[in-house]
Design a protein around this nucleic acid. Structure first.
Lengths: 222, 222
DNA sequence: CGCGTCATTGATGTGCATCAAGTGGTGTGG
DNA sequence: CCACACCACTTGATGCACATCAATGACGCG
């Protein structure tokens, strides 16, 4: 929570986020339909959020890593509207939302921070809508990988190497593609010398080229 | 703003949203990159929000009507990240965001309302992501029409008749389809006796059937 | 070490995009 | 008031990107 707070304020904040919760890989932090009470700040581990459509198909709406907040969708109707599932063993801070509200009435910077977290999620989803609405398979995957590695880098990890915590199917669901298409696109990137893929280990060899794929509409390689 | 406020509180709220602004059809309420200062509550008229991707294509991210709030995306970086364009002559309430923040620190119900508005937008975008990620053309258009008519109905308009304020191209952009596909899908719906289309006037003849198209994955008519 | 899960790769199919032509409604200026 | 021009829309023909179906291969866990 990188915000400008006094020591005393930080202490008060700590008091309400003292509760921790561990989530095993494959287990849900919360599920759609459950009563909403708290936001969760991820301390360690990696999550996906996914929701089921009317007909039963389900769709991954996002991947979250350490430092990010999940549960924002539950505020509006006091019910969670999606599932949050740990993709590796994880630990979260439980932040009872009414306590957050109380405290943010007193601590100016916290109020602003809460607004920003919500707004940031809206902006993130705009860019996903853009991805799903206008991009081709290669552009989608390139954008996804660049986003992942950038977020990891901001957390002190490598700028070029990462471990994909999700399956090809989960990536595909998030990107609006089938798992075979994801796999084929990885292979094509590898042939072009853009990345090196071994299972879930990924090394990015040409960051600029990936960026160019995202920026250029017609870059399908032919 | 349907929230439980005392008369005195409503008065204080009115004081900060007193400013009005008229927007002519085709004009922008705000544009991407502009400094964010206020949220806008639509009093009359109809808007689209759209953003440009890296390569210059642009994409409609939503349509907003009376009673809805635009500008939420600007909070996080104090910059608007999309354009809001009036599709018919419109009038909005200007709500300076710092004033909203101040007041919501004092008025409990307002704070909660702000949180809910932000969260609702997140949930709405989840369902658009689901639409773009998993649905076929007919399902997308059916879901879109049902959503539109439902929101209009909540505002006292007909449950079965509406005027489309946007072009086929704008619908297509929002739904991740080309304008020709939107047009063809309308024609197919008309053939099947689900709707009656004359220009932008639309009459829904079989609401249930449209709902079934959204609910059923394989309902492509063959 | 063997089984189940996840991933890769190939062959084929299809839904939507693209390209192209034509229609109709609207608004403007003569 | 009508003629013309423009724009939104419709409809048809064709192509392509991705889905689907199917078989095989590689880990990793019990």
């Amino acid at each position: 929570m990188p915000i400008g707070l006094s020591a005393a304020e930080v202490e008060r904040l700590d008091a309400i986020v003292s509760a921790r919760r561990k989530v095993k890989r494959g287990a849900a932090l919360f599920r759609s339909g459950q009563r909403f009470e708290s936001l969760y700040a991820i301390r360690t581990g990696f999550f996906k959020t996914c929701m089921a459509s009317a007909d039963g198909r389900d769709h991954v709406t996002g991947f979250q890593m350490a430092g990010e907040i999940v549960g924002l969708d539950g505020i509006v109707n006091e019910r969670h509207t999606c599932d949050a599932v740990a993709l590796e063993d994880a630990e979260v801070c439980v932040m009872p939302f009414d306590r957050v509200g109380e405290l943010s009435r007193e601590i100016n910077a916290l109020q602003h921070h809460v607004h920003r977290v919500l707004s940031r999620e809206i902006v993130r989803e705009h860019s996903v809508m853009l991805l799903l609405g206008t991009m081709r398979a290669e552009e989608r995957l390139a954008a996804f990988l660049l986003n992942l590695v950038q977020r990891l880098h901001a957390r002190g990890f490598s700028r070029t190497e990462l471990v994909l915590r999700m399956t090809r199917e989960e990536m595909g669901s998030y990107l609006g593609l089938k798992l075979e298409t994801v796999s084929r696109t990885f292979s094509r990137f590898a042939e072009l010398g853009l990345v090196e893929v071994r299972q879930r280990h990924l090394r990015i060899l040409d960051l600029q080229a990936l960026q160019r794929i995202v920026d250029n509409p017609q870059s399908s390689g032919h």
